[in-house]
Amino acid sequence: MSAGGEGVRLGAGSPFWRAVLYAVLLVFAVYYLLPLVIMLLNSVKPLSEIRGGNLLALPKVWTFEPWHSAWSTAQVGVQATGLKPYFINSFLMVFPAVAISAALGAINGYILTKWRFKGDSIVFGMMLFSCFIPFQIVLIPMAKVLGTIGLAGTVSGLVMVHVVYGIGFTTLFFRNYYAAFPTELIRSAQVDGAGFFRIFWRILLPSSGPIIVVSIIWQFTNIWNDFLFGASFADFDSQPMTVALNNLVQSSTGVKEYNVHFAGAVLAALPTLVVYIVSGRYFVRGLMAGAVKG
C-alpha cells in the first residue's frame, strides 16, 4: 500500500477542489487525534482546571502529579498501589503468550502448506473459525478448567488462555505467508537431504522475518488490549492493565480524578502505541491478513 499509486483525481485537480480535499482530510485528522490530545492535555492538568470547564485548553499549571499517582499511588481496587503492578502483570502475560502462540503458528502454517495431507483444509478451517468465536461461549468451561488445573487467578492461566485462542490467528498468518513460499524450495531441500525440521529451521524461518513481525505485533496488541479474559479469570494480584484501568476509572468511591484516569489510560495505551508507531506497516499488514482470509 505505497503512497503515490495511480489515483484518479476528482474535480480534475483544480486548485479550489484540491484545497477542499486537503481541508476535509485535515478535519478528519483532527477528529482522530482529538481524544488522544485530550487525554494527554488533561493528564498534566490539576483536577480543578478540568472541573473548571475546558477540556481543550492548555494547562495553566503543568503538573505530573496525575502520572505519578496513576503509576504508583492511585487506589485500584482494594489497595493504593497505582497501575504499576498491573502494568507488569500485562507484560508477564504478554511475552510468553506471544512467543508460544507465534512459534506454534509458524510450525502449523508450515505443515498446512508444505506437508499437506488429507483433511488438512478441514483442520485449518476449524482453526480459522476459532479466531472468530465470541469468547463468551468458552468463559464458563474455561473458568472450570483453570480451576481444576490450579491456574485460576494466575498470570500463567491467562498466558494459557491467550495461547489457546491465539493459535488460530498465528496459524492463519503463517499459513498464508508460507502458501506463497515456493514449494520448489522445499523440494530442492528434500533432494539436498534436509528433513522436516531442518527445512523449517534452515529454509523457511530465515525468510519469515516479515510475518514473524506481523504475528508478534498482532498478538501483542490483541493480548495487551484484552479485557474479557482478564476480567473473567484474573485475581486482584494477577489482573492485567486493562482490567486495572477500568477498575480505576469505574471506582465509585471518592472523588473522580479525571486527570489520573487520563494518565492511566495513556499508560495503558502506551505499549501498543509504541509498537504501532515503530512498526505501523506491519501492524496494518496484520490487520489485513486477519481480515482478508485465504
Partner: peptide, 29 residues
C-alpha cells in the same frame, strides 16, 4: 486519500492508530 495526496504517509497512520488502542482506553477517553 487516493487522490495523490501529499502527506498521505502522515495522514494514514493518524487515521489508523485508534485500532491499536484497547477498547478500555477508547472507552475511558
Amino acid at each position: 486519500l487516493d487522490q495523490k495526496i501529499r502527506g498521505e504517509g502522515i495522514l494514514r497512520p493518524i487515521y489508523l492508530y485508534p485500532m491499536a488502542l484497547s477498547f478500555i482506553v477508547t472507552g475511558t477517553a
